[in-house]
């Protein structure tokens, strides 16, 4: 490398001595303020690592003199939100459920916070879109068919105490007998063929429908009704509509009649606050099927 600044004039800065193809590199000094800013940043950086959590240790990082922690900050923010929401939650707990809709602000709050509760606690079975899971008998909450009633108070009752659980005495309860112990396979087939026609469908074997209707009237109509209209006071499903909790084809109905179903929902009375239960009830009520 050449070190011959031939082009330079008096007063020009020196070069670094680097040269490539005749291009030389000046050794310009930095502006003084620039250097000071640089040093100030280093000093600031050192101070920062002392003041804030910084250096990683075996189990935790150095805590920092200011005692800052992002977890504590989140906890504080959550507490602040809860404090801010306390009055509106109190209002929600104090009014008639059916009249919440008259207060637009309260209703909008309840539906939004109910959506959050639903996604946290209910979506595991009912699905995040509340469409349910037919294969497992988790009901679809979007349609207009309700096993235990679809007005706001009935929904609230169901959420608070659940269905067929052993936790709450107030839980909704009913049990269909398993007809596999009482009927022959042919009798079950006859009943299933009749039930298929209740909702306007066609039976697998029309010849068995008449015999099935007799069996139905004697064994099933007490709960499901003469015309299969169901009974929400005991959670007996409507057999005359297009909606089937576990499926409406021949195989699914045969399984249901033979073994009975015994769907369980936990109660939320002791796990969620009353405001949360009311909020999620209002949320479910406005999903499309509320009565």
């Amino acid at each position: 490398m050449s070190n011959k600044p031939s082009q330079l004039q008096k007063g020009d800065p020196t070069t670094t001595g680097h040269e490539w193809d005749g291009i030389q590199e000046f050794n310009n000094p930095l502006p003084r303020w620039w250097l000071w800013t640089f040093y100030a940043c280093i000093a600031w950086g050192i101070g920062y690592t002392i003041a804030y959590p910084a250096w990683p240790g075996i189990s935790a990082a150095t805590p920092g003199l200011l005692g800052y922690s992002s977890r504590a900050e989140v906890a504080e923010e959550i507490a602040a939100v809860e404090t801010r929401n306390a009055p509106v939650n109190e209002r929600l707990e104090g009014v008639e459920l059916a009249s919440v809709g008259d207060d637009a602000e309260l209703y909008s709050y309840a539906v939004s916070s109910g959506a959050a509760v639903f996604r946290t606690w209910c979506a595991q079975c009912h699905g995040s879109g509340a469409g349910g899971v037919q294969a497992s008998g988790y009901p679809n909450l979007l349609d207009d068919d309700w096993l235990w009633g679809g007005d706001i108070d009935a929904i609230h009752q169901t959420i608070a105490y659940g269905i067929r659980n052993e936790e709450y005495d107030d839980a909704r309860y009913s049990a269909m007998p398993a007809y596999g112990d009482m009927f022959t396979a042919e009798e079950i087939s006859q009943v299933v063929n009749f039930v298929q026609t209740l909702s306007g469908g066609t039976a697998n074997d029309p010849a068995q429908v008449e015999a099935g209707s007799v069996l139905y009237a004697d064994n099933c109509a007490a709960c499901h009704g003469e015309a299969g209209e169901g009974d929400i006071t005991q959670g007996a499903p409507n057999l005359a509509d297009a909606i089937w909790l576990y499926g409406g084809d021949y195989a699914a109905l045969t399984y249901t009649v033979t073994n009975a179903r015994f769907g369980i929902m936990p109660g939320w009375q002791d796990r969620l606050s009353e405001a949360e239960i009311r909020a999620v009830a209002l949320y479910v009520h406005q999903l499309g099927g509320g009565q």
Partner: peptide, 18 residues
């Protein structure tokens, strides 16, 4: 369109999208 679920069967058999 809300596609979770894609459509809902109503009790009278009609189909609803949201």
């Amino acid at each position: 369109p809300l596609r979770n679920p894609t459509h809902v069967v109503m009790s009278d058999g009609s189909i609803r999208n949201t």
